[in-house]
Design a protein around this nucleic acid. Structure first.
Length: 500
RNA sequence: GGGCCUGUAGCUUAGUCGGCAGAGCGACGGACUCUUAAUCCGUAGGCCAAGGGUUCAAAUCCCUUCAGGCCCGCCA
């Protein structure tokens, strides 16, 4: 009936404890030191008990009973420590209470003195203990821990309890985001929050999630990007802005994609895409230094050298190098033949050189870009929000960053010509009406904003999840997302499954 | 959408040329006052992911479904 993990013998213990007048879920515990503080403070302790008393708290991981003595290991947010508990010290009643009712998984507070055992381990010689939380679910095995990938993702809390490595990844994730904010604050950028629920989605080519607001009686979309709102802020006079945004895209799930993911988007007035490439390089190298302390990263079997400056290739150069063809010098028919001969798929509907350039880059180039590489000067057809190239016809001032074959960042000299933007979005909208599910809508208010005048602006978006993957060496996005999207487990036979 | 792989006790798993479903840890009971994967003695715990089929006999072979992982496609 229920899908809970509750263990009846543990629930019985709660009953017993209550009958003995013990508060099973008390409200507060005064701890003088964390585990780490104790280990640092008493690093040189000998076999005699410290004169100073300490109190600390944590989850019980292992209990080793030895008759009138008990050893137990407890762990808090950043460490584990051993407890030494003797019947002589606690008295019969308290000692038996521990012996009978404290299990691995429970959370307790202890008070005592610190000493080093004969085996050399810093240990708390416990004078008294207090049950702080009784766990009613069995902990996974102490030695092998929790390995099952599906359970680790579905019940991340158990993963975090059991696997220090997993806890480390998310600690690192938190630090990356914190250092990122600090980096940007120190350079004078302001952080803003823009709408997640949007009447018109834009800023990227992707299928949205659709929802509905009852009071407004109106369809809304979960944002696929914050871009168009952040540019409105630049119009409004904020010259250096950023947002760390959750984006939502209704696409497939794989090793590099989760339907909701985090991105930092940064915009700066009076800058262009060259400046944004510099900024991207600088911020990633800075974060690697803060978090990994190095400029050499190992990822999926590759040694990545992120020392600046990074490679920069135009898309045409990349296609020339990896596909061996100069798109500019061939007719559409020739390009079509080339695509067919090289097993490139999806070229049937393509009618322009620019689209072929992008297609060939994706097919031949992307996966080869292991060391950090900026690809720049993208075709205009696939870049509706990027400014036309100052010299080259048919191209835009847009770049993407690739590391280990992953797209890590995307930026441009932002299109700020309102008439051009209107024409480009109208073209997108026409495609959408022709059935391109990922083409953009026309956001007339955004075009209106540009109409008031946006200064020349550079912008970039950096995928935070992939950046965390890179800096933690994890080649699956699910390993760096606390709660990756999973298919809901089927309801039990007693529940109503159908509701159509 | 295509391919490969996985699903056995709370956890980690053995068993898959078809022949009674095993272990370690954990739980429960007992012994033990410096152990640390503590040790020792004992007990309980399984619809072998679900459903169907082949067979005298299925965890094992076949089909379908569910969930997950990896690769490819798709996603610019």
């Amino acid at each position: 009936m229920d899908h809970l993990c509750f263990d009846t013998t543990k629930i019985d213990k709660i009953q017993d404890l209550r009958e003995r007048g013990i508060t099973v879920y008390p409200y507060k515990f005064e701890r003088t030191d964390t585990v780490r503080e104790i280990k640092e403070r008493f690093a040189d302790i000998g076999h005699d008990k410290s004169p100073d008393a300490v109190s600390t708290a944590g989850r019980v991981y292992v209990v080793r009973q030895h008759g009138k003595t008990i050893f137990a290991d407890i762990g808090d947010a950043d460490g584990r420590i051993q407890l030494y508990i003797r019947k002589n010290d606690l008295g019969e009643e308290s000692f038996n209470l521990f012996r009978q009712y404290i299990d691995a998984g429970d959370i307790i507070g202890v008070a005592g003195h610190v000493f080093r055992t004969k085996m050399g381990e810093i240990t708390i010689w416990v004078d008294r203990f207090e049950l702080l939380t009784k766990s009613v679910c069995p902990l996974p095995e102490k030695f092998h821990g929790l390995k099952n990938v599906e359970t680790r993702y579905r019940q991340r809390y158990v993963d975090l309890i059991m696997n220090e490595e997993s806890r480390g990844i998310f600690r690192t994730r938190s630090r990356i985001i914190s250092h990122l904010r600090q980096f940007l604050f120190e350079r004078g950028y302001l952080e803003f929050e823009t709408p997640t629920l949007q009447p018109i989605y834009g800023g990227a080519n992707a299928r949205p999630f659709t929802t509905y607001h009852n009071f407004l009686d109106q369809r809304l979309y979960l944002r696929i990007a914050p871009e168009l709102y952040l540019k409105r802020l630049v119009v409004g006079g904020f010259e250096k802005v950023f947002e760390i945004a959750k984006n939502f895209r209704n696409e497939d799930i794989d090793t590099n994609h989760n339907p909701e993911f985090s991105m930092v988007e940064i915009y700066e007035a009076y800058q262009d895409y060259n400046d944004m490439m510099d900024l991207t390089e600088e911020v990633i190298v800075h974060l690697a230094g803060e978090v990994c302390g190095t400029t050499t990263l190992s990822f999926a079997g590759h040694e990545l050298d992120i020392t600046r400056p990074w490679h920069r290739l135009t898309m045409e150069e990349a296609v020339q190098e990896y596909a061996g063809i100069s798109v500019r010098d061939h007719s559409i028919d020739e390009l079509r033949t080339f695509a067919g001969e090289h097993g490139v798929r999806g070229f049937e509907d393509i009618t322009t050189q620019g689209e072929f350039l992008a297609l060939f880059f994706e097919h031949f180039g992307e996966k080869n870009l292991i060391q950090p590489t900026f690809i720049y000067d993208f075709p205009i057809e696939i870049s509706p929000l990027a400014k036309k190239h100052r010299e080259s016809e048919g191209l835009t001032e847009r770049f993407e960053l690739f590391i280990a074959g992953m797209e890590m960042a995307n930026g441009f000299s932002e299109l700020n010509d309102p008439l051009d933007q209107k024409a480009r979005l109208e073209e997108q909208d026409a495609r959408r009406r022709r059935g391109d599910l990922e083409a953009q809508m026309i956001d007339y208010d955004f075009i209106c904003a540009l109409g008031y005048g946006m200064p020349p602006t550079g912008g970039v978006g950096i995928g935070i999840d992939r950046l965390v993957m890179l800096l933690t060496g994890k080649d699956s996005i699910k390993e760096v997302l606390l709660f990756p999207q999973m298919k809901t487990a089927l309801p039990g036979p007693d529940e109503d499954a159908d509701e159509e």
